[in-house]
Design a protein around this nucleic acid. Structure first.
Lengths: 148, 148
DNA sequence: GTAAGAAAGTTTGACATTCAAAGTATTTTC
DNA sequence: GAAAATACTTTGAATGTCAAACTTTCTTAC
C-alpha cells in the first residue's frame, strides 16, 4: 500500500473513530461517567489554575451556551469546580477538581502510550524527520483554514 | 520539551484542524444539507450497488436503529435509495442515488486533493517516515480495541 | 454620576445523533 | 407448523450543538 492510500485510510477511518477510541480508553471502572466530550472540556480547562468560560469556549470552538451545559454536567459529576470571579462578577472561573486532575493525568498517560507506540522502532533521526513533517502539516492546515 | 511531548501536541491539534477543515469542505453551495454524519453513511454504503442495513451499520459501528434514523434523513434529502429485498423480505437494501453518487465523488476528490497537497509539502523521506508513523498509530488503536 | 452600550454567562427552544429495549415482519429450524 | 432466529423500525431517554433572548455586571461617553 502506498503513502497516499495510507493517508486516505487514516483520514477516513481513524479520524472518524478517534473520539470513540479515546472515549473507550478513558472509561474504566474508576471513571465510568467520563464522555469524550467531557475529556475535551477538561483538556481545554487544563490542570493549572482557573480559566473563564469564554476562553475555554473559544479554545474548544463552541459557543458559551454549549460550554455552560458541558460544565453543568462536569460540576455535577464532580470533575470541575466553578466559581465567580471577585474582580469581575460577570466572569465565571472553571478549574479541575482533585478528581478532575486525576482523570486528566490518566488521559495524558494514554496519549503518552499512543506516542510511544508511534515512535517505537523509529531511530532518533527518523523521529526528528517525523516531527518536522508534522510541524509542516500543522502549518499547512492552519494556513488552509484561514481561507475557508 | 522532548520530542514525544511535541509530537503529542502536534498530533492532537493536527487531528482537530483536519477534522474541522474536512467538515467545512463537505458543505458547498451545491450540497448544503450534507452533514459529516451523512457523508460517513454514504461512504459506508459506497458507490457500487446496494448493501443491507446490518452490514452498513456494522461497518459504521452503530446500531441498526441509529442507521435507520440516518437513512430516513438521507432518503428524504434524496441522496439514498431504499428498497426491500425480493429474495428475503426482511432485508432492506440501501444504495446511493444519482445525487448521492455525485456527492460521494465530490468528497473523494476533496480527499485526493488534500492528500496531494499534503504530500507536496513533504520530502521523500518525510513521506516515508510519516507513513510508517500513521501505520503504527492505526495498529495501536486496532490492538487496543481487541483488548476491550 | 448616570444613561447607553458592551461583555460574560445562562437559559430556552429546536434539532441531530446515539443507544437499549420493545415491537413487527419474515425466514429458518426442528 | 410452532418456536426461535433474523432484519429492521420504533420508542424513550440522553448528550451535544447552535442561535437568540435574557440577566447581571462593568465600561464608556457625556
Amino acid at each position: 500500500m502506498d503513502i497516499s492510500n495510507t493517508l486516505n485510510e487514516v483520514l477516513v477511518k481513524l479520524f472518524r473513530d478517534i473520539n470513540t477510541l479515546e472515549e473507550r480508553a478513558i472509561r474504566t471502572e474508576e471513571y465510568q461517567d467520563v464522555t469524550a466530550n467531557d475529556m475535551h472540556v477538561m483538556e481545554a480547562i487544563g490542570p493549572e489554575g482557573a480559566k473563564n468560560m469564554t476562553r475555554v469556549a473559544r479554545e474548544l470552538e463552541v459557543t458559551t451556551g454549549t460550554l455552560t451545559i458541558s460544565v453543568n454536567s462536569l460540576v455535577k459529576k464532580g470533575y470541575v469546580d466553578r466559581t465567580r470571579s471577585e474582580e469581575d462578577r460577570r466572569v465565571v472561573l472553571v478549574s479541575l477538581s482533585g478528581k478532575g486532575k486525576k482523570v486528566y493525568l490518566h488521559h495524558q498517560k494514554f496519549h503518552q502510550e499512543m506516542i510511544e507506540a508511534v515512535l517505537q522502532e523509529l531511530s532518533g533521526e527518523e523521529q526528528r524527520v517525523l516531527e518536522q513533517a508534522l510541524v509542516k502539516l500543522t502549518d499547512f492546515f492552519r494556513q488552509r483554514e484561514k481561507n475557508f
